[in-house]
Design a binder for these strands. Structure first.
Lengths: 220, 220
DNA sequence: GGAATTATTAAATAATCATTAAAAACCGCA
DNA sequence: TGCGGTTTTTAATGATTATTTAATAATTCC
C-alpha cells in the first residue's frame, strides 16, 4: 500500500482518496485512529496522511504510535493552526503538515516530494543493498544474499529505523519478541553473521555500527 | 476453491455468488480486503473478482498483495472508469476489469475466457518439461512421465505459481484441500517423488527448490 | 593497565527437511 | 465381494541447516 489516509470526515476522505488514486497511488482510507493503527501494523504503508481531529485516539497519539512502529513519513492534516500544534506534530515525528482548507495541488506536491526523497522505486534501497520486504529477499550490488529468517528480521528492523540508535534490548525484543536481557550473546552473534554478509569489510563495518554501551545503529 | 469474490455491497455479492454457483463454480465471498487476504493465503483461489472500493484496505492494495502470493488471475470490478484506474489496475497485476453496472453475461464470458485460457487449452511448458493440463500428461524431453494424480496436482500448482515461494500450508491446501496433522510428511514425500521424476539430478534439485523454513518454489 | 563491553570462534542444541520402508487406503476387475 | 496391484499415508531414521550457548580473544573507556 502506498498511502494510508486517516480522516473521519467522509466527504474529505473520498475526495482525497479519489485524487490520490488518479495520481497513481494505491490508497487505503480509514476513519479512526484505532483502525489506522491496526491496518498499519498489519500491512504497513509508505506514507500516512493523518488528520489531527479524530474521534477516540487523536492524530497526535496515532502519530506517536506509528513513529514507534517505523519510519514511515507522516503528513498531518489540521484545521487548527496554532503554533503549538505545528511544533507538537513535528516534534512527535510528523514529517510535514498542511492546513485545512488546503490546496490539493500543494498536498500532491508535498506527497510527491516525500516519495521522491524517500523511495527510489518500490523497493527499499540502502546503498548497494536492496531489500524486498514482501518477498524477503536481499540483494547486494545485484547479487542475491541468502538470509536466514532471524537475519532478515534483524536487518529489516535496523534499516526501518536507520539513523536511530537501537538498544540491544529493543533489538532483541523486536526480532525475538520477548524480553530476555540475559541472552545478548545471541544478538551479537547474529550481528556478526549479518555484517559478514552485508559489509564490504566486516572487520570495519560502516552500515551496522556499534554504539558502545548502548547497542547498534544502521548508517545509510 | 474456484472463485473468490471480494465485494462489500452485500446485494451485489450474493447476486454474483448465486450466478457463479449456478454456472458450476465453487465460490467464496468476503466483504473486506483483510478477509480476502487471509482466505487467499490459506486456501488460494483459481480466480479473484475484486471490487476496488472497499472499506479499509482497498482493492488495489489487495491486488498487489495477491500478486505477491501467487499468479492467480484477477478481475477488477469498478464503478469508476478513469483511464488512470484501468492503467493502475492492469499495471498492478489485474488480468482484466469490468465496469459497474455490468452485464452479468459479459462477466461470465470473461470468467470462462480466463478459465479456458489458463486451465484448459494449450500445453504448459517449462524448460524441457511439457504439461498437458487437460490430458493430465507430462513429458520430459519428449519422453512421457508417469504421474500419479497427487503428483500431477502438485506439479501443476507449483508451475502455475512459478517463481513464487509457496508455503507448505498453502501447497497442501491447494492439492489436498484440507488441513491435516501429518500434512508436512505427506507433502515432503510427494515432493520427493516429484523430484525423482522431474529433476535431472534429484539430489540437487534445480526446479523444485526448497525455501528453508517456508516451503518450496518452482524455478523455471 | 584494568574492568567492562563487544567480537570471534567453535561446539552443542534445536528445528527443519530428506529418505526409506512399510502399512493403509484405493481401484479396477472378475 | 475379494484379489492383486497401485497409490497414498504414516512412521522411523538420517542429513542438513539454523540458532543458541559457551569459551576465549579483542576492543573500548576510564
Amino acid at each position: 500500500m502506498d498511502i494510508l489516509i486517516v480522516e473521519d470526515n467522509s466527504e474529505l476522505q473520498s475526495l482525497l482518496t479519489d485524487f490520490l488514486r488518479k495520481e497513481g497511488y494505491t490508497v487505503s482510507a480509514v476513519s479512526s485512529g484505532e483502525k489506522a493503527l491496526s491496518l498499519y501494523e498489519k500491512y504497513g504503508a509508505r506514507l500516512v496522511l493523518l488528520d489531527i481531529n479524530l474521534p477516540g485516539l487523536d492524530g497526535f497519539a496515532v502519530c506517536e504510535k506509528i513513529r514507534k512502529l517505523g519510519n514511515t513519513p507522516i503528513i498531518m492534516l489540521t484545521a487548527r493552526v496554532s503554533k503549538e500544534d505545528k511544533l507538537n506534530g513535528i516534534i512527535l515525528g510528523a514529517d510535514d503538515y498542511i492546513e485545512k482548507p488546503y490546496d490539493i495541488d500543494i498536498l500532491i506536491a508535498k506527497i510527491k516530494g516525500i516519495f521522491k526523497r524517500r523511495f527510489a522505486d518500490d523497493k527499499l534501497t540502502e546503498g548497494d543493498i536492496t531489500i524486498d520486504l514482501a518477498a524477503e529477499k536481499v540483494t547486494k550490488a545485484g547479487k542475491p544474499l541468502e538470509m536466514t529468517s532471524k537475519e532478515f528480521e534483524l536487518l529489516k528492523f535496523l534499516i526501518e529505523n536507520k539513523g536511530q540508535t537501537l538498544t540491544k534490548e529493543r533489538l532483541f525484543n523486536a526480532v525475538w519478541g520477548i524480553d530476555s536481557f540475559s541472552e545478548q550473546q545471541t544478538l551479537t552473534v547474529h550481528i556478526k553473521w549479518l555484517r559478514e554478509k552485508i559489509e564490504n569489510d566486516p572487520k570495519t563495518p560502516v552500515h551496522i555500527v556499534t554504539v558502545w554501551g548502548k547497542g547498534y545503529r544502521w548508517e545509510g
